[in-house]
Design a protein around this nucleic acid. Structure first.
Lengths: 342, 342
DNA sequence: CTGTTAGCGCGTTCAT
DNA sequence: ATGAACGCGCTAACAG
């Protein structure tokens, strides 16, 4: 039999030894050529470089990290690949990384908003010896995040965590909820609803301050549970339409994605936005600015938040500091055309 | 000065030796407990497990990969974090990975549609000894992709590549362009335009067959360059409006994102869609189905494409086969409300 | 100054 | 249940 247990024609990648043998030098010298060619004679250098090219040699980051005791890796765990808010945050991270001295390599793992898969991702990253961890809107528990933060510098974006070992970059969700409520109050809305982000990051704060602001004005908003996804906004809206005798005059959705789901359900049910119902979102993703959507929303500066978090955590990688910082970003009202006076 | 060259309080993570010492056994035994606890006496097992918990030990994937000669890593390079089409493809990849036996860990690196940053990503992945490479709509040259494919099983999604070492999963862009053209012809459109995806994957094929199909019907569509981004569609549309005496009756944009940009510009310029101008996209991303957008488009089954590519490349990892396969997926017309008879 | 040898880092494996 | 050797690249110490 030709071969059965060993797979066919799998070549091991060439090692530094292969290069050394091929070039007729020691492996130390090959290593030196790779790291500081100026300290090697021209002849040897050329021989080594030729050997590298001929063999198609690539140094193993695995072996290098093992000895150098740093992997150069930054582990990023995202909860939701479909939310372009985090795509913007990631752009901010890249932009900081590319501009920084000792650039870490930002690896991304999608958690798909499942706690189990996020915690698996974290475990794998830590086993890979990432030098820092960034969580983009995590479904993990505070305790879990803090545990990770004790092993390696960690930052969250859009997710509040107690505890001093974590860098936290969040917008002020309480303020955001208040901004939304005040704006709707100013427009004269009194019968309003909020579809929450469920257990999502910042959802409780947005909901609580939205409700409180309205209650201080003597109104009681209807609050129904939802998610940060389009489907969550759609489901919540359906529930509102079924439950209430008459629809609210304004709906504050958990975020832009959910607001889009909300608008979708409203229009399909025959309601006009904003003539019959005003709708607000949260985040101000690129989509929200589209003419076809043109959503009134609360802006969170995603790029800036990504940059800030990356900076904080990378500075801690370099300084070795164990103490996280918290940065509270001010949200801003963005008025577009999905809202109008009542 | 307190400390300058050595950072403060950075603890090395505990190693298998620390655990062994703590538990009073050899490191071989600790290793055994981790991999096959049943072969270790209850007493030793407990001692080792206690030590692991107390020290917070995590095995190093670096060291493990070095000796086992496989990293368990799958490197995924995406061109565009903002295009949810690829988010769907990634979901397909995850879904295959999670269901498969020896699950590779899918690491993602964003190339941000820059060739240099994609090729850096590939280099880093290969140095990390990923067992396979997946390119989601790459800006890399065919030659580069093939070179990588010689080092490790590689697959592309949405990107045609010549050469036998690559698994290629693409939709039939020629057919897609033809579908769009025929549909518009059927609607009676004769004065049409196409905004291309520029150098983007499949863009040439879509453009060529769109043009050919119209030319066979005796029409000559206006073709202007664009990109696969919203901005590309918007810019192309602006150019069309400036250049032409009268706007076309239908515009086929490079993809859905671009189509959204197109619609945006048209509406802002006072044209109604579809009454004045029909618009078509390509991809059928989730956005396209929204009531507010409701875009006529050509569907590419993103999830399925991701699953397929993951399966092909993972099977090659296991079999050691060097020969890639090509899978051509049939695109489908999806009629919504941005098109109407002329 | 150029190049070599030896040993390390961490987990696995195999013979004992 | 253990010690020694190994995988691959880096580095300190040393030799030419």
């Amino acid at each position: 039999m030709p071969e059965s247990d060993s797979p066919p024609e799998r070549r091991r990648p060439p090692t530094i030894r292969d290069v050394a043998k091929h070039a007729g030098v020691s492996k130390s010298l090959v290593s030196l050529v790779l790291r500081d060619p100026s300290r090697v004679s021209e002849k040897s250098r050329a021989a080594v470089k030729d050997a590298i090219d001929e063999l198609g040699y690539r140094p193993s980051a695995l072996a290098r990290s093992l000895v150098s005791q740093n992997s150069g890796l930054l582990g990023i765990i995202t909860s939701n690949a479909h939310d372009t808010f985090y795509a913007d945050v990631l752009e901010g991270v890249s932009s900081y990384i590319n501009a920084s001295e000792r650039a870490l390599m930002p690896l991304i793992l999608h958690g798909n908003h499942e706690e189990a898969s996020e915690s698996l991702a974290a475990t794998r990253f830590l086993e890979l010896r990432v030098e820092a961890l960034m969580l983009m809107g995590s479904a993990l528990s505070d305790a879990a995040i803090e545990r990770y933060g004790r092993e390696v510098p960690a930052a969250t974006v859009g997710r509040w965590v107690e505890g001093e070992t974590i860098d936290v970059v969040v917008n002020d969700d309480r303020r955001g909820g208040e901004l939304a409520a005040k704006y709707l109050l100013d427009l004269g809305h009194r019968r309003v609803a909020h579809i929450t982000g469920g257990t999502g990051n910042g959802a409780k704060e947005r909901a609580a301050s939205f409700r409180r602001t309205f209650e201080e004005a003597g109104c009681r908003p209807t609050i129904v549970p939802g998610t940060y996804l389009q489907a969550g906004g759609a489901d919540g809206t359906r529930r509102l339409l079924e439950t209430l005798d008459q629809p609210p005059t304004a709906i504050f959705a958990a975020n832009d994605l959910a607001a889009i789901g909300t608008i979708d359900v409203l229009r399909r049910a025959g309601y006009r936005v904003p003539e019959d119902v005003s709708v607000m979102g949260y985040d101000d993703i690129a989509l929200a600015a589209l003419h076809a959507i043109d959503l009134t929303t609360i802006n969170q500066p995603a790029r800036q938040m990504g940059e800030t978090a990356a900076r904080l955590v990378c500075e801690r990688v370099n300084s070795g500091s164990r103490e996280g910082q918290r940065v509270l970003i001010e949200p801003a009202l963005v008025v577009r055309s999905t809202t109008q006076p009542v």
